[in-house]
């Protein structure tokens, strides 16, 4: 097991290194620079470039950047000249993470329950209702979902606050808006997986042994059916916890989502790289956890391990 984990960690570090390197050069290939206000004089641009070290040879900048990265230092943003990228991320991540955890809780608990109930009622009306919810959830994009929730529950009926993030009632609409898609996918995957498992021989064996229907469902069917859901959770956790542009902007939540768009629009090199490194590391870390969890849940996955 230790060897397996060590291998996963090694692969993860290499992945992050490659990712950061590629993005470093890609960002600098984008047309225009970070200082593109047409009012800036050429000297002001040169002074700014020198201030941020962008006037040095590309490879030297790259080495400096890697050196800083090892110390966890992302440098100063060009859009927010008085703030470091670390400071920006440290301020915004708690909001995104808080929202993301709420959305995940909503998505996983409701998704699993819906999927299980749906599968157990295969073909009847209850199943149909849940399938419709799932199709709706996976096909309606979050900006429409968020806007609908906001329009009806906040603006029209006044049940929840319209925007901002400063108390429990503020968190409900954005959490549902953000988690709805995941909820629907979890429910679909769980349903399909449940239906596949139910045809396995070991279910028949269990039934023929006279075990109660409840115990078969709980102990054999759900336990085996949940694996595919765990698979999608890795990337989903990373994506949901590190901020989403649409929901955060719609509900005026000061999370990280805006930086994905803003940093690229402004050619804010430090922020682009900071976001990439942060998100990349988080994603790789989540995937690694899922891989390790796999090994824990299902020993067959532990290749070469004992």
């Amino acid at each position: 097991m230790a060897k397996y984990i060590l291998k996963r960690v090694g692969i993860s570090i290499v992945t992050i290194f490659v990712l950061v390197s590629v993005v470093f050069f890609l960002a600098r290939l984008m047309p225009g620079g970070p200082f593109n206000d047409p009012k800036l004089s050429a000297t002001a641009r040169e002074n700014l470039s020198a201030y941020y070290g962008f006037d040095k040879p590309m490879f030297e900048q790259y080495l400096t950047y890697l050196g800083n990265l090892i110390h966890g230092n992302f440098g100063f943003s060009t859009k927010y000249p008085s703030r470091t990228v670390n400071d920006l991320l440290a301020g915004a991540f708690p909001y995104s993470a808080d929202l993301g955890i709420r959305a995940l809780c909503f998505a996983i608990s409701f998704g699993l329950v819906f999927g299980i109930i749906s599968a157990l009622n295969r073909g009847n009306k209850i199943d149909l209702i849940f399938v419709i919810i799932a199709v709706f959830g996976t096909s309606v994009p979050d900006f429409i979902m968020g806007a609908l929730l906001q329009h009806f529950f906040a603006i029209k009926w006044g049940l929840f606050p319209i925007a901002q993030y400063k108390g429990f009632s503020y968190t409900i609409l954005p959490s549902i808006g953000l988690g709805f898609y995941t909820m629907a996918s979890v429910s679909r995957i769980m349903r399909a997986s449940m239906l596949e498992v139910v045809q396995q021989d070991y279910i028949k064996t269990a039934r023929s042994k006279g075990i109660s229907r409840f115990r078969v469902t709980w102990k054999h069917q759900i336990r085996n059916a949940i694996m595919p859901v765990v698979t999608i959770l890795g990337p989903t956790v990373a994506a949901v916890l590190t901020g989403t542009f649409v929901i955060e902007s719609l509900f005026a939540i000061p999370g990280m989502g805006k930086y994905y768009v803003e940093s690229v629009q402004n050619n804010d090199y430090s922020l682009i790289l900071g976001m990439t490194a942060f998100y990349g590391t988080f994603l790789v870390f989540c995937n690694m956890i899922v891989d390790i969890l796999y090994g824990v849940i299902d020993p067959r996955v532990r290749i070469g391990g004992k």
Binding site: G91, P94, Y95, A97, D98, I101, R102, L104, C105, F106, I108, S109, L112, Y165, K166, G167, F168, T171
Partner: peptide
């Protein structure tokens, strides 16, 4: 674990959010 997370997530905002506010 999932349920605890749900419960925790649904009671109060995380301390960090409260701190910054």
């Amino acid at each position: 674990a999932v349920m605890t997370l749900s419960a925790a997530g649904c009671s109060t905002p995380s301390t960090s959010v409260e701190e910054t506010q």
